[in-house]
Design a protein around this nucleic acid. Sequence first.
DNA 1: CTGAAGACCTGCCTGC
DNA 2: TGCAGGCAGGTCTTCA
Length: 271
Amino acid sequence: MPELPEVEVVRTGLEPCLVGRRIESVTCHRTGLRYPLPDMASLHGCLITAVRRRSKYLLIELSDERVLVWHLGMTGQFHVLHKDVPAGKHEHVRINLDNDTSLRYRDARRFGYAGLLAAGEQATHPWFAALGPEPLGDAFDGACLSSRCRGRKAPIKTVIMDAHVVVGVGNIYAAESLFRAGIHPARAAGAVSAARLERLATCIRAVLGEAICAGGSTISDFVRADGRPGYFAHAFQVYGRTGLPCFVCGGAIKRIQQSGRSSFYCSHCQH
DNA sequence: CTGAAGACCTGCCTGC
DNA sequence: TGCAGGCAGGTCTTCA
């Protein structure tokens, strides 16, 4: 289910387990996930030098300057386990390291995907070239959001979920951010005032930051690299709370469909 | 061009 | 108990 906070939590969990380790072998239990897997055998002998993140992509950097890029899709999980632990259900890839552990990739729905990029290729690769700013970085603020909402008739919720506008805001955190900012999810993005977009940008940053601190949100199957769950789901104000009372005004939380996805909001608190 | 909807794949929950 | 139907995190592609 990962949105940006979940991917960041996975990254911080993997970093100490992977950096400085050498890859001894790779086992793939299938040839592709959403797309065909890259040449995983070529990872043999590589040293892992860093584990970074851009948007919802995990970037595993290698000593030969290549980068193993991995997107978790909706149900992808990484675990670092002892090499003798047998493959679990839906384990598709296993990367054996030089300390008797192995990195396992599990993904029930197989919406995840991976790529192996050469040095310098990342900036121009289609997965990265058109991405908007990181929501927690310096480049994202109210002015940035305003400029990208100007003239747009699409609902504000679909605009903040558009990775060309800002990366990492998925269905859950879009709903939570809009609630906190008091903005109705169906309002046309171009019709939201600059002052309210400023507030929304602040709320997006706050919600994502708090979610990372809480270890992400565990909806159904998100777990961290060490198998522990995240705790941010306990802090949801609107997501998944259809019919339950709003914590602010007591009114019933509503659910609508937008672009085929569920949106949750309080009609009294959000306009 | 913009925005909406469909496709990808599996598991889980609900209701009959 | 069994089964059909609806629903789910993300992104890319297609269609109007």
